[in-house]
Write a protein that binds this DNA or RNA. Sequence first.
DNA 1: CTCCATCTTTGATCCCGATCAATGCTGCCG
DNA 2: CGGCAGCATTGATCGGGATCAAAGATGGAG
Lengths: 247, 247
Amino acid sequence: MRGQLALGAWMKPSVVTIEPNGHFCSDCAVRDFAVCSSLDPAELREFERLGRRVHFAASGTAFSEEDITTSFYNVLEGVMRLYKLLPDGRRQIVGFALPGDFLGMNISGRHNFSADAIVAVTMCQFAKAAFGRFIETRPHLLRRINELAIRELSHARDHMVLLGRRSADEKVAAFLLGWRERLSSLEGSSETISLPMSRQDIADYLGLTIETVSRTFTKLERRGVIEIIHGGISLLDPAQVEALAAA
Amino acid sequence: MRGQLALGAWMKPSVVTIEPNGHFCSDCAVRDFAVCSSLDPAELREFERLGRRVHFAASGTAFSEEDITTSFYNVLEGVMRLYKLLPDGRRQIVGFALPGDFLGMNISGRHNFSADAIVAVTMCQFAKAAFGRFIETRPHLLRRINELAIRELSHARDHMVLLGRRSADEKVAAFLLGWRERLSSLEGSSETISLPMSRQDIADYLGLTIETVSRTFTKLERRGVIEIIHGGISLLDPAQVEALAAA
DNA sequence: CTCCATCTTTGATCCCGATCAATGCTGCCG
DNA sequence: CGGCAGCATTGATCGGGATCAAAGATGGAG
């Protein structure tokens, strides 16, 4: 069956370190584009006391689907995979979280996907209750959260099109461009795209198997469109990739 | 290619009728579960003046992807398909809208999907600017909208799993159960499920072809699991369908 | 350094669902 | 009532991507 997950990769225990307080939101790397961008300096100082930094080692799990939500998280550093599992082990990655992403919002009181670290991750953790109280009197923060949710929803719909209606080649090409786009807003534009996630992660994100992803990369490389480098790929012919992704 | 759309179905001109005002939100069928459930009676009277009722005949288009968003909509009656098209005509239906659904929220100022009526539809239309002003001073309405967005996001992620990781049989079974669930909250639970959308719509929602949907229905009927009736299906053996959908 | 586990690539084959092709069904309009 | 257009079903065949299998690559532990 497609997307069967080998045991091992995700069974490792979460490794989490909680840092003592003493960080300043005003110095934070994601200050300008995360949820906190909606807060003024005075609010920020109050906000500071709500959160604490937590670290997860690579492959550590921040939370699992169906866990009761006790915290919200703001990703500060690293990359996470967000995924859902079917009872038989098939996995669908519903997104990758990068610095600035806000995790944990839901209606049911339980997480509706699992999240684990792909590389070492630092997050700002907020107790749900305290965060809820803080937001109560800050409609601009609520508006910011709403904005992020609506943006996510739009991505989710784009991804539905990819999953339901695109060929393997198109999926891979669209993934490379989308990932490059996200990286570029964090660390500047580049033709070299770092891919911290495994081939299996890419496959589970695109609704393919690992073999198909690997073969597609190889095919693109043979055509001279990309070059497979250590820990990522290099776009030799971006226009060609865009043509593939477009339709 | 999968999901190619026959011309004709969606080329028909939108048919829209705008009713003169004179409706009361307090009498509205969706008053208790749509966005407006967050408003108190006094606010509701003010809200009343913001919206106007619009009607769309079957297959009429309320808005198209990339159109500049000038209005938000609250579905009062009927069923709509929400979809995205690829340049070559492949279509992915990202959802069906039913009474109580709120449409039009986006970040870019442009709709990120198209919406058209499957059967005659009545909606409550709000000018974006006026609605924005109204919400400005009503954080509880914003919270309600946020709630709806987060609920949608959760559905979107469930649907990604379906599109990326489920077989045709599982997709069809999950669709029938999901649709029954939605109908039951509107018109009460029943083993008879009305399916106002075409087979092509179902296929484009599930990432399948019309032939596969048709064959799967026939197969389920032959097994005695469902009965295909005019305008819908009847669940003869719900447990069996659930077993199929679960995985 | 070697060893071993994990990840990635490559090859051979299979099969589910797409595609191609009729035929049947339904309802609308004259 | 017949004709016709659009939908739905069914059958035959094809092919993209899954599955099965094995051989590289890579990297961390000792």
